[in-house]
Amino acid sequence: MPGLLEKRRDDREEGEIPTAGMADIAFLLLIFFLLVTTINVDTGIGMTLPPKLEDQEPPPVKERNLFNILVNSQGDLLVEDEPANIGQLRQRVKAHVTNFGEEPDLSVSPDDAVISIKTDAQTPYDTYIQVLDEVWMAYREIWDQIARTGQTPQGDQVLDQTYDSYEAYRSTLEPQEENLIREAFKAQISIAEPDTGD
């Protein structure tokens, strides 16, 4: 009699759905998605285009505040009306924006300084990106310095704490949070409008 009771209990236990294979199925799917996933982040040089002008003249910029970079169809550079090469560009841009009115030909203050890049129709895109990159890197190096010291080159305190680099500071920002470094030391890079041909 106890044997019969035993048997009936065994029957009931075997009636359950076996869930052991469930994990295997899930693992298989998991491995599939693991393999096909690409967590690649888009990287690039960010720019903001000027808004469309409705017949009004662009605001005038004083000649000394303007740092002109011209790139011709061969990819040669003309910086402030003199031929130059890309290697010197970063230092010259830095000298221009951190001039604070010292040299009479360079900018009055970082807020007034404008870097203008003008290209020809046949300018290679690669050269344009290299030039743009050097200009941004000039600003990036200044921002790095602000992040490390917490102060702008003028001596204004902008950050409560210091960071290893500008990137390290930027990664701590929330999407809506204001970027204090960029706010304190604005980058003004202008992509000159192409000639319309007349």
């Binding site: 888009d42 690039g44 040089i45 290299q130 743009l132 600003y139 999407p175």
Partner: peptide, 12 residues
Amino acid sequence: PEAEALTKIEQK
């Protein structure tokens, strides 16, 4: 092209 002064766009 290749560049140095890159920013990441997190919001795809």
